[in-house]
Amino acid sequence: MNSIERAADRVAQGLALVGAIGLMALLLHVAAEVLARNLLDRPIPATNEIVSRYYMVLIAFLPLAWVERSRAMISVEILDSFLPSPLLRLSDILVAVIACVIYAAIAWVTWGDAVKNYAAGTFVDVLGHALPVWPTYFLPPAGFLLAALVTALRGIQIARRP
Protein backbone atom coordinates (compact mmCIF):
# COMPACT_ATOMS: atom_id res chain seq x y z
CA MET A 1 0.00 0.00 0.00
CA ASN A 2 2.90 2.37 0.67
CA SER A 3 3.99 2.28 -2.97
CA ILE A 4 0.43 3.16 -4.04
CA GLU A 5 0.37 6.03 -1.56
CA ARG A 6 3.73 7.32 -2.80
CA ALA A 7 2.51 7.09 -6.40
CA ALA A 8 -0.69 8.96 -5.49
CA ASP A 9 1.37 11.65 -3.76
CA ARG A 10 3.66 12.03 -6.77
CA VAL A 11 0.80 12.20 -9.27
CA ALA A 12 -1.10 14.69 -7.11
CA GLN A 13 2.02 16.83 -6.65
CA GLY A 14 2.76 16.66 -10.38
CA LEU A 15 -0.72 17.85 -11.25
CA ALA A 16 -0.48 20.63 -8.68
CA LEU A 17 2.80 21.64 -10.31
CA VAL A 18 1.15 21.68 -13.74
CA GLY A 19 -1.60 23.85 -12.25
CA ALA A 20 0.99 26.19 -10.73
CA ILE A 21 2.81 26.46 -14.07
CA GLY A 22 -0.55 27.22 -15.70
CA LEU A 23 -1.13 29.97 -13.14
CA MET A 24 2.28 31.49 -13.82
CA ALA A 25 1.66 31.32 -17.58
CA LEU A 26 -1.69 33.04 -17.06
CA LEU A 27 -0.08 35.81 -15.02
CA LEU A 28 2.69 36.37 -17.58
CA HIS A 29 0.27 36.26 -20.51
CA VAL A 30 -2.15 38.74 -18.97
CA ALA A 31 0.67 41.06 -17.83
CA ALA A 32 2.18 40.99 -21.34
CA GLU A 33 -1.24 41.71 -22.84
CA VAL A 34 -1.84 44.66 -20.51
CA LEU A 35 1.60 46.09 -21.27
CA ALA A 36 1.22 45.58 -25.01
CA ARG A 37 -2.25 47.12 -25.00
CA ASN A 38 -1.35 50.15 -22.89
CA LEU A 39 2.22 50.89 -24.01
CA LEU A 40 2.18 49.78 -27.64
CA ASP A 41 -1.54 50.11 -28.34
CA ARG A 42 -1.36 46.53 -29.74
CA PRO A 43 -3.23 44.01 -27.60
CA ILE A 44 -2.28 40.34 -27.87
CA PRO A 45 -5.02 38.61 -29.88
CA ALA A 46 -7.04 35.81 -28.26
CA THR A 47 -5.86 36.57 -24.72
CA ASN A 48 -9.42 36.47 -23.40
CA GLU A 49 -10.17 33.16 -25.08
CA ILE A 50 -6.88 31.52 -24.08
CA VAL A 51 -7.21 32.65 -20.46
CA SER A 52 -10.82 31.53 -20.09
CA ARG A 53 -10.65 28.36 -22.20
CA TYR A 54 -7.17 27.05 -21.38
CA TYR A 55 -5.54 28.54 -18.28
CA MET A 56 -8.62 28.74 -16.07
CA VAL A 57 -9.71 25.18 -16.84
CA LEU A 58 -6.19 23.89 -16.18
CA ILE A 59 -5.91 25.77 -12.89
CA ALA A 60 -9.36 24.74 -11.66
CA PHE A 61 -9.46 21.02 -12.41
CA LEU A 62 -6.01 19.44 -12.53
CA PRO A 63 -5.02 20.20 -8.92
CA LEU A 64 -8.19 18.56 -7.50
CA ALA A 65 -6.33 15.34 -6.64
CA TRP A 66 -3.61 17.30 -4.84
CA VAL A 67 -6.21 19.25 -2.85
CA GLU A 68 -7.92 15.99 -1.86
CA ARG A 69 -4.61 14.29 -1.04
CA SER A 70 -3.61 17.26 1.12
CA ARG A 71 -7.02 17.09 2.81
CA ALA A 72 -7.41 20.78 2.03
CA MET A 73 -11.00 20.64 0.79
CA ILE A 74 -13.53 22.57 2.83
CA SER A 75 -15.12 20.32 5.44
CA VAL A 76 -17.67 20.84 8.15
CA GLU A 77 -17.02 18.78 11.24
CA ILE A 78 -19.79 19.87 13.56
CA LEU A 79 -20.52 16.43 14.97
CA ASP A 80 -17.03 14.92 14.73
CA SER A 81 -15.95 16.07 18.17
CA PHE A 82 -19.00 14.38 19.72
CA LEU A 83 -18.68 11.03 17.94
CA PRO A 84 -16.98 8.07 19.57
CA SER A 85 -13.92 6.74 17.71
CA PRO A 86 -15.67 3.86 15.86
CA LEU A 87 -18.46 6.14 14.59
CA LEU A 88 -15.94 8.81 13.58
CA ARG A 89 -14.04 6.21 11.57
CA LEU A 90 -17.28 5.05 9.93
CA SER A 91 -18.16 8.67 9.16
CA ASP A 92 -14.75 9.25 7.55
CA ILE A 93 -15.11 6.11 5.42
CA LEU A 94 -18.63 7.13 4.38
CA VAL A 95 -17.46 10.62 3.41
CA ALA A 96 -14.60 9.14 1.34
CA VAL A 97 -16.98 6.75 -0.44
CA ILE A 98 -19.54 9.48 -1.17
CA ALA A 99 -16.84 11.85 -2.44
CA CYS A 100 -15.38 9.08 -4.62
CA VAL A 101 -18.77 8.29 -6.15
CA ILE A 102 -19.52 11.95 -6.81
CA TYR A 103 -16.11 12.60 -8.38
CA ALA A 104 -16.42 9.46 -10.52
CA ALA A 105 -19.91 10.45 -11.68
CA ILE A 106 -18.75 13.93 -12.63
CA ALA A 107 -15.72 12.44 -14.41
CA TRP A 108 -18.03 10.15 -16.38
CA VAL A 109 -20.35 12.97 -17.44
CA THR A 110 -17.54 15.36 -18.35
CA TRP A 111 -15.79 12.57 -20.29
CA GLY A 112 -18.85 12.23 -22.51
CA ASP A 113 -18.86 15.97 -23.05
CA ALA A 114 -15.15 15.91 -23.91
CA VAL A 115 -15.62 13.15 -26.48
CA LYS A 116 -18.49 15.05 -28.12
CA ASN A 117 -16.41 18.23 -28.35
CA TYR A 118 -13.45 16.28 -29.73
CA ALA A 119 -15.65 14.69 -32.39
CA ALA A 120 -17.09 18.09 -33.31
CA GLY A 121 -13.65 19.74 -33.34
CA THR A 122 -14.91 22.53 -31.09
CA PHE A 123 -13.17 25.85 -31.65
CA VAL A 124 -13.69 29.57 -31.06
CA ASP A 125 -13.31 32.16 -33.76
CA VAL A 126 -10.61 34.72 -32.98
CA LEU A 127 -10.20 37.44 -35.58
CA GLY A 128 -11.14 35.05 -38.36
CA HIS A 129 -8.91 32.23 -37.11
CA ALA A 130 -10.13 29.03 -35.50
CA LEU A 131 -8.66 28.46 -32.04
CA PRO A 132 -9.31 24.81 -31.12
CA VAL A 133 -10.67 24.46 -27.61
CA TRP A 134 -11.71 20.80 -27.66
CA PRO A 135 -8.51 19.66 -25.86
CA THR A 136 -9.47 21.57 -22.72
CA TYR A 137 -12.64 19.52 -22.38
CA PHE A 138 -10.46 16.55 -21.36
CA LEU A 139 -9.00 18.36 -18.32
CA PRO A 140 -12.11 18.19 -16.07
CA PRO A 141 -12.60 14.42 -16.44
CA ALA A 142 -8.90 13.86 -15.75
CA GLY A 143 -9.02 16.02 -12.62
CA PHE A 144 -12.24 14.44 -11.35
CA LEU A 145 -11.07 10.89 -12.05
CA LEU A 146 -7.81 11.41 -10.18
CA ALA A 147 -9.69 13.03 -7.28
CA ALA A 148 -11.99 9.98 -7.21
CA LEU A 149 -8.98 7.69 -7.04
CA VAL A 150 -7.46 9.73 -4.22
CA THR A 151 -10.68 9.65 -2.19
CA ALA A 152 -11.00 5.89 -2.81
CA LEU A 153 -7.44 5.43 -1.57
CA ARG A 154 -8.24 7.53 1.51
CA GLY A 155 -11.30 5.40 2.25
CA ILE A 156 -9.21 2.23 1.98
CA GLN A 157 -6.53 3.71 4.24
CA ILE A 158 -9.10 4.62 6.90
CA ALA A 159 -10.75 1.20 6.68
CA ARG A 160 -7.40 -0.62 7.06
CA ARG A 161 -6.28 1.49 10.00
CA PRO A 162 -6.26 -0.45 13.29
Rank of each mutant, 00 (worst) to 15 (best):
N2W: 08
S3H: 04
E5N: 10
E5Y: 08
A8C: 13
A8G: 05
D9K: 14
V11W: 07
Q13E: 12
G22C: 03
G22V: 02
L27P: 01
L27K: 00
H29D: 04
V30H: 09
V30E: 03
A31H: 01
A32P: 05
A32Q: 02
V34T: 12
L35W: 09
L35Q: 03
L35A: 10
R37M: 00
N38K: 11
A46K: 05
A46S: 14
I50M: 04
I50G: 00
I50F: 03
V51T: 07
V57N: 15
I59D: 04
I59V: 04
A60N: 11
F61Q: 08
L62M: 10
P63Q: 02
P63N: 11
L64R: 00
W66V: 00
V67W: 02
R71Q: 15
A72T: 00
I74T: 14
S75W: 01
S75P: 00
L79W: 06
L79N: 06
S81H: 13
F82P: 00
P86K: 07
L87R: 12
L88G: 06
L94T: 07
V95M: 09
A96F: 08
I98K: 04
C100Y: 10
I102K: 06
Y103H: 11
I106A: 14
V109Q: 10
T110D: 03
W111D: 01
G112T: 07
G112K: 04
D113I: 13
A114E: 06
K116V: 00
A119Y: 02
T122I: 01
V124R: 14
V126K: 12
G128Y: 05
H129N: 06
A130H: 14
P135E: 02
F138W: 07
L139A: 15
A147L: 05
L149F: 12
L149I: 09
L153A: 12
G155T: 12
A159L: 14
R160I: 03
R161L: 12
P162A: 14
